[in-house]
Amino acid sequence: MSTAQTLTFAFMDPPFESERTTTFFRLLEASLEAGANIKVFAYEGAVALAFSKQQAHGNSVHGRGVDEEAHPLSRQWIAALQQKAKERGLTFDWINCGLCVDERGVNEVISGCGRGSPADLWKFASAADNTLVIGTR
């Protein structure tokens, strides 16, 4: 059981549409670097971040095949952060809003990501040392 401080993040944006998504992942990375346990509540489009069927593709405009293109996928970013947390003895909990998942049909998620409800956001926030909400636009 980690004795580190815990930070909760609520996030709403899908994988690729906004600069907020990459800033959010950079914030998670920085928080792990700072030694924090992480709890994420993914709401609305953010539930697609952990969708396990995301597929990399080649890019003919770039003239690169699948392997060479190495397309970024948010499920891989989450997995990389999960691994980083593990290596540092920190926890990394990820809960998707279950109803948001159902509506979007993105039920299949990578290992280590679960489903819940806004009650879980309140539970996370109440137990954490601090919380940051990143709204969408």
């Binding site: 709401y43 609305e44 806004p118 009650a119 956001l121 309140w122 709204g135």
Partner: peptide, 13 residues
């Protein structure tokens, strides 16, 4: 969706 989320959280205190 945020009013809905607020009502959900209010329901758990």
């Amino acid at each position: 969706t945020i009013l809905w989320l607020s009502r959900s959280m209010r329901a758990v205190g």
